[in-house]
Each structure stands twice: as C-alpha cells, then as structure tokens.
C-alpha cells in the first residue's frame, strides 16, 4: 500500500520580491471566536486577496511597528486571507486590538501544505485541540469545497472548556449537515451550559474506536494532546505513515535561514510545518 507523499521545502520566493518584506495590508473583518481567540480577515490595500495559500501554509502577520508572528492561514476567500489568533503574548495582544480598516503587514506564504492531492478518495480523521483547529480548518474547508472527491470526514475536537472550542458554532451547527461529515466534541471540565462529552481527547478518541481501514489521521494540538493522542492512534493501529501533523515552533524569518525552528536537518518554517509521524520519527528531537 502506498503512503501519502508530503512535499517538503517546496515554498519559493516570489520573483522580484524580498521574501522578508511585508506587504502593507488592511484588516477587512474581525470576529471574536472565543474569549481569547479572534479571526482576522486580511485584504491587500487594493482590496484583493494578498496572495494564494495552500491548506496548511503559513504567513507572517505583523503589527508593523511591534513585531511579527507566524500563523497558519486558517481559510481564504475571494478578497481575503483569514488568520485565527489566540492572545498569548505581546504581538497577539495588539493583533486583538485591531479593527476593520487598520493597517497590518503580511508576508508569505511559507512552508509546505497538507497533501490534499494525495488524500483524494481517502477517509479522514481529524483530531484537534483548542487553537489547533486553525490549521486543520484550512484543510477541512478546502475539502468541503470539493466534497465529492474525498471520503468520510470525522472530526474529534476538544478544548478545556466550551469557550476554548474555536469556530464552535460553525463546527457544531454547519459541519454535521454536510454529507459524510461526523463531528465529536468534548471538553475537559464540566462546564455550565455544556451537556456534551466531558473527556480528555485521547481516551475519547480511543472510546470512539476508529480503525485505520485506510483512514488518514490529521492531528494538531498542544504538546500534551499531541503526545497522548499520538499514543492512542498508534494503539488504534494507525501506522506512523498515516498520521499527519503540523508543527509549531518559534519562527522569525519563515524562509529557512534564521535558525530557530531548526530540527535535525530541517527547518520547520520551510520544510514543514506539515510532516507525517513516520518522518518525524527520523528527525532527532522532533517528537520530544
């Protein structure tokens, strides 16, 4: 059985453009997703989509005078790119204060993408936690756009509290209506107004008992979710080649030069962020 091929180091500089220089852009729309997560839609000064990004690719978003942060493009439309920003530090705090019309800088796209070509015809199991939904969503919405070309889509998504479930309304109400899409949500703690599942992701996943059966798992979440769910997937019989993830690491340049996201001979910003677990097994320190 042939495994999914993931391309690495495939991003290229745009001819005639300094890859480290941002395009001045504007905020098109802002939506509050959870108490500390906002989705920002960014458009060029001309009102067009700043550039094309493939599902899973990243871009450097900046409040130009304050600093830059790398985000996964969580979805794109005719005239915008959307980023899902959790408030965790100095720059993200300022990104949260933005209003439509405000200026931002944007450079990219960087990194590789989910192997959406290779996934054609496959059944897919998405496992996400909290803000980890952002990169998954870029692939999921892509799959929805050409729904008939892919098999069943199952989503296991959890957060500490219902408030940590990003895009919750959309995921709860819209996605299950799509043909062949099943959504399982859980939260870690009993919470007022939540009558759904209360469980950590890994045991929840095991209880749901997904068998590999040619299914590809796509995993994205914080370090502990990643570790535990990876163990669960392996217990359920998934081969490391059939588990795909997207890595997070501090990034500055986005073009594989500045050194901080170096793991083994790879730079996550350029060769990643999308890897299969089988590939990560071969990179020293990647699964630490």
């Amino acid at each position: 059985m042939s495994h999914i091929e993931i391309e690495h180091g495939c991003a290229r500089s745009v001819e005639g453009r300094d890859a480290l220089m941002p395009l001045p852009c504007r905020v098109l729309a802002v939506s509050q997703e959870t108490s500390d997560v906002k989705a920002l839609r960014i458009t060029s000064l001309q009102g067009t989509r700043p550039f094309d990004a493939k599902p899973g690719q990243t871009a450097m978003l900046s409040i130009i005078p304050s600093g830059e942060c790398m985000f996964c493009v969580s979805s794109q439309g005719e005239d915008y790119l959307e980023f899902t920003v959790k408030k965790v530090g100095f720059v993200t705090e300022q990104l949260h204060a933005l209003r439509p019309g405000d200026a931002v800088g944007l450079r990219g796209p960087y990194g590789n993408w989910f192997p959406y070509e290779g996934l054609r015809g496959k059944d897919l199991l998405f496992i996400g936690g909290g803000i980890g939904m952002a990169p998954l969503r870029s692939l999921i919405t892509y799959l929805f756009d050409c729904r008939s070309e892919y098999g069943a889509i199952d989503l296991v998504y959890s957060g500490s509290t219902p408030d940590d479930l990003v895009f919750c309304r959309e995921i709860q109400e819209d996605w299950p209506r799509i043909d062949g899409v099943t959504v399982h949500l859980s939260v870690y703690r009993e919470s007022p107004g939540w009558d759904g599942e209360v469980a950590f992701t890994a045991p929840f996943l095991e209880r749901l008992g997904y068998a590999p059966d040619g299914r590809i798992a796509v995993l994205c979440g914080g370090p502990s979710l990643f570790r535990t769910c990876l163990a669960s997937l392996e217990k359920l019989g998934f081969a490391p080649e059939d588990i795909i993830t997207t890595l997070e690491m501090r990034m500055k340049c986005g073009i594989g030069k500045c050194g901080r996201c170096n793991i083994g001979s790879h730079y996550i910003c350029l060769d990643g962020p999308v890897f299969s677990i089988a590939e990560l097994h071969k990179i020293p320190g990647a699964l630490h």
């Binding site: 180091g9 495939c10 991003a11 290229r12 500089s13 300094d18 890859a19 480290l20 220089m21 073009i255 594989g256 030069k257 350029l270």
Partner: peptide
C-alpha cells in the same frame, strides 16, 4: 548555501 539556496534568496 544558507542565504542563496533552498527556495528563497535573501535579497540583502
């Protein structure tokens, strides 16, 4: 090797 290869050329 670092600044001129692997997909991105460092302009400066």
């Amino acid at each position: 090797d670092v600044f001129l290869t692997k997909g991105f050329v460092d302009v400066s």
